[in-house]
């Protein structure tokens, strides 16, 4: 599930000290044909005001060429709003938003990917699944997170991105991503911490993801429930027609 948010989406085998191999192994260990879960978002602003929303997330395929659809279910005012993402290995993803109240789909422009996703602390770019080949990697250090040994890597995007680079902490024993810190020219922008890992269908999956927007000092926590892998989903579940479905 963590794959949904950018740097979680990685796979392939690895040699212990080769950063690219580490990421490939992370990606390989989280590969699945499809995924579905129910997410609960809690957005807490700088004044500690908390807003809660729920969605259903479905994904077909993994990494570079995956397609995913996210549809809000709660609260009633936002029910039906949906986001369709088509990821591509060689370029940025295509994203469309569906707004049932005006029965309109709207393409999210590339220029807008750095903006916040529906008032959460995720940006639209953070929702993309990126293939290992879209970044250059460097091993920075060995580190320990909550008692677990981890590699600290640096990734630099090869294509246009709001981030200049990111730091990733990858647990050595199970190749799960523990933390990602993303930077722009001015410094640290966003910190994402993955926790409550659980093995579902032989895939280690974080049940809790916490995003901290350092600039705004606001936080979004996402919890994953009813998680399933390899569910029967077809291509027609991820088309614009599917996006426009009312529920």
């Amino acid at each position: 599930m963590s794959r949904m948010f950018g740097f979680l989406a990685l796979a392939a085998a690895a040699l212990a000290q080769d950063p690219r191999a580490i990421i490939q192994e992370v990606q390989k260990r989280s590969v699945s044909k499809s995924q579905r879960y129910q997410g609960t978002l809690e957005v807490s602003d700088a004044r500690k005001k908390v807003a809660t929303k729920q969605w259903i997330f479905e994904r077909l395929g993994s990494f570079g060429e995956s397609k995913s659809l996210l549809r809000f279910t709660e609260p009633p005012e936002v029910k039906g709003i949906a986001l369709l993402i088509h990821n591509h290995p060689e370029r940025a993803s295509d994203q469309w938003m569906w707004r049932p109240a005006i029965e309109r789909d709207q393409r999210i422009a590339l220029q807008d990917r750095s903006t916040r996703f529906f008032g959460t602390d995720f940006s639209y770019e953070d929702l993309e699944e990126r293939d290992v080949d879209q970044f250059d990697y460097k091993l920075l250090d060995q580190d320990t997170i909550d008692g677990a040994a981890a590699w600290k890597l640096e990734s630099k995007p090869r294509k246009a991105s709001q981030y200049t680079h990111s730091h990733l902490w990858i647990r050595k024993d199970n190749y799960t991503v523990l933390k990602v810190e993303s930077f722009n020219k001015k410094g640290l922008v966003r910190r994402i911490v993955y926790s409550d890992y659980e093995k579902v269908a032989n895939i280690w999956t974080a049940r809790k993801t916490e995003v901290h927007d350092v600039t705004r000092d606001s936080r979004t926590t996402m919890r994953v429930d009813k998680l399933e892998y390899n569910v029967p989903l077809g291509e027609d579940n991820f088309t614009l027609q599917a996006l426009r479905r009312k529920s």
């Binding site: 602003d45 700088a46 004044r47 005001k49 807003a51 929303k53 809000f72 005012e77 936002v78 039906g80 709003i81 938003m97 707004r99 049932p100 109240a101 005006i102 916040r116 529906f118 008032g119 705004r216 606001s218």
Partner: peptide
């Protein structure tokens, strides 16, 4: 002083 004052951006977009 906070752009969240569009009380909830998602609701703002969801409700025409």
């Amino acid at each position: 002083a906070d752009d969240d004052v569009i009380d909830d951006p998602l609701i703002f977009l969801a409700q025409p």
